[in-house]
């Protein structure tokens, strides 16, 4: 088949909601966009282990400690599926790590905020996982098969984490005045960064149009953000916490919440690497990688020796 025919066949598949599989022909730009998005997603899972991992040794009860460990372990698992999905596009995990460690590849800006109290574990589950789900559920129907299948599994666990996070917040909000204040403070700090997770406004989003065409995206950033606000405000009301936005109000006409303007300067500052924890997070990942080098080398050397023994 000629390039044109291949491209027509590819377009036809996308239009018919057929999945693109690793051995199928795909435009180079489709492949690259998917490597970029899937690897960013994988990196986010891995970097995302750090802010929550920060509280494992200090979790306030054994039940919470076990749940937090299990959650962080799920995230590592998500990272694994996503790296595998990405590798089907012809790039190795080592190359992907190099991109992360060199700063060439990005990860979700949310993980550049510090977890300063226990309540942040609740806020992250409730808000950050909540925003992630809104982003990710449509991806279960995306056109690239391996990514879509990974997302089915990821989304199931994410919804569980979100409920767990909300439950932490609810327990705190119903607790002592100190606990309630801790929950409110966490909501104040995580609210706007969570809204920012849904990306720049439609006018500034460079990839949206192409991504919608390939079904990597079904709704625009602003639509998803509205959906997140509409879903989350009643949950905050339910547990008696206040969303830190003086412009937030119910709009009778649209039947949706109107909300205030985000601090886009802060958004771009964090995205460009100058948020509160960008350096700390990257240093932690680079450190783990470089300090682990002798371990990985040992595993390789041992495997080679075992192989030689078997063939000898």
């Amino acid at each position: 088949m000629s390039e044109l025919e291949l491209e027509a066949e590819f377009e036809r598949k996308i239009a018919n909601d057929q999945k693109i599989e690793p051995k199928d022909w795909m435009p180079e730009k489709y492949r690259k966009t998917h490597i970029r998005q899937i690897s960013q997603h994988a990196h986010s899972e891995i970097v995302g282990m750090l802010p929550e991992g920060n509280w494992i040794t200090r979790a306030p009860s054994l039940r919470r400690k076990v749940a937090l460990l299990a959650k962080v372990q799920d995230e590592a698992g998500h990272g694994l599926y996503l790296y595998s999905a990405c590798e089907t596009l012809g790039i190795s995990r080592e190359q992907l790590y190099d991109q992360l460690h060199s700063g060439e590849a990005k990860y979700s800006s949310i993980f550049n905020y510090p977890t300063v109290t226990w309540a942040d574990m609740g806020a992250i589950g409730w808000l950050v996982d909540g925003a992630a789900i809104i982003n990710q559920v449509p991806l279960t129907a995306t056109s690239y098969g391996p990514y879509a299948r990974a997302m089915v599994r990821v989304c199931k666990e994410e919804s569980f984490h979100q409920r767990q996070g909300f439950e932490i917040m609810m327990t705190l909000a119903n607790g002592t005045p100190e606990q309630k204040a801790m929950a409110q403070d966490a909501l104040n700090r995580w609210w706007w960064p969570s809204l920012m997770m849904l990306g720049p406004t439609d006018a500034e989003s460079v990839h949206t149009e192409q991504s919608m065409k390939w079904k990597l995206k079904r709704k625009t950033n602003d639509e998803l953000r509205q959906q997140f606000v509409d879903q989350t405000v009643p949950q905050a009301d339910l547990i008696g916490l206040t969303i830190p936005d003086p412009d937030l109000r119910w709009n009778e006409e649209t039947k949706r919440y109107d909300f205030g303007e985000m601090d886009w300067d802060e958004f771009w500052q964090v995205v460009k690497g100058h948020g509160p924890c960008n350096k700390v997070r990257m240093d932690a990942r680079r450190n783990a990688w470089s300090k682990g080098e002798w371990v990985r080398d040992a595993a390789m050397a041992y495997a080679e020796k075992q192989e030689q023994l078997e063939t000898a």
């Binding site: 891995i46 282990m49 990272g79 694994l80």
Partner: peptide, 29 residues
């Protein structure tokens, strides 16, 4: 083991060590 979470030499080891920590804490409870 919980201190190591997110800092392992590779992802598989990270998952395994966290898994062991989880088992041990489950037994503790």
């Amino acid at each position: 083991l919980g201190e190591l979470c997110g800092h392992g030499p590779n992802l598989e080891v990270d998952i395994a060590m966290t898994n062991i920590a989880l088992d041990l804490l489950g037994q503790t409870r």
